[in-house]
Design a protein around this nucleic acid. Structure first.
Lengths: 140, 140
DNA sequence: TTGTTTGCTTGAGTGAATCAAGGATCATTG
DNA sequence: CAATGATCCTTGATTCACTCAAGCAAACAA
């Protein structure tokens, strides 16, 4: 998503700031991925592989079709960032795991994506707690 | 973007909540658009046409290539939601405007995208102000 | 007028996403 | 044990978003 998600005639200031936040967050995420020549989706999948897991588990967690994961993982594999090993317990299944280079790239991505860290860092510990509480309440 | 943008080993609770917020927001936006058979990008562009404007202005505001806007507007036009009139002042340029049906769909989209409204609505007016202040500070 | 810039479109190419269909393997159960 | 059905994943076909390079036409400047 390069185009921002909003605003649709924001009625309150809080809504407008919420939109700004989401937009800047998304762009920062995409920019950090782009620095490493990854798409957002690739960075996302790579970031979920702290432990090896099956394609289906990824699809379910990320809320998309399994065939989408197949494609993304195939590209990550072609980049040498991920392996698709057979699952010894179930020969239909595959276990996806990061390679050492995948670990490195993932780490560099985490370093490059500074937005959330920086934003939260502008707040005092007390303010961070307040923000957490407010957002939790807002999320219901 | 169907895949979520994060999390990359969130270090603080505030960061984690921030990620949740962004993810839910983006999904809600996409879902609202899908209800009207629109993509996020189409809903976004449609929402920026409260006043007629040129392709270039849209591209600049949305931070993407002009040719991207050409495509999206072409699809909106094919759906009858938008017109591309010649600009009397500059015959190179086009003025994009919503049709009455585009107005209606845009309004229905604004109604369907309840997330931000609902989330903010869970907070008292005081809390809304606090949230606004905290997010502004966090955004720097 | 000549040349340059501007506004938009076209064409080519990549990637994300979804759906339908299929192959292989597992798991039941008659 | 053999047939059935469910599960895990891949393939193929399509659509859309997005980007870049080229190009056309109108505006503008020298």
């Amino acid at each position: 998503m390069a185009l921002p998600n909003g605003p649709v005639a924001t009625s309150s200031e809080a809504e407008a700031v919420l939109f700004d936040l989401v937009d800047i967050y998304d762009r920062a995420y995409e920019a950090a991925a782009a620095e490493l020549s990854l798409s957002s989706a690739q960075a996302c999948v790579l970031g979920r592989l702290d432990e090896r897991r099956g394609m289906g588990a990824l699809a379910e967690e990320l809320g998309c079709d399994a065939s989408n994961i197949t494609q993304i993982v195939a590209r990550l594999e072609a980049l040498g960032l991920v392996t698709r090993e057979p699952n010894p317990r179930d020969r239909r299944a595959r276990l996806v795991a990061r390679t050492p280079r995948g670990d490195e790239i993932n780490h560099r991505f985490a370093t490059a994506f500074t937005f959330a860290r920086t934003a939260v860092g502008r707040l005092s510990p007390d303010e961070q707690d307040q923000l957490t509480a407010l957002l939790r309440k807002a999320l219901g």
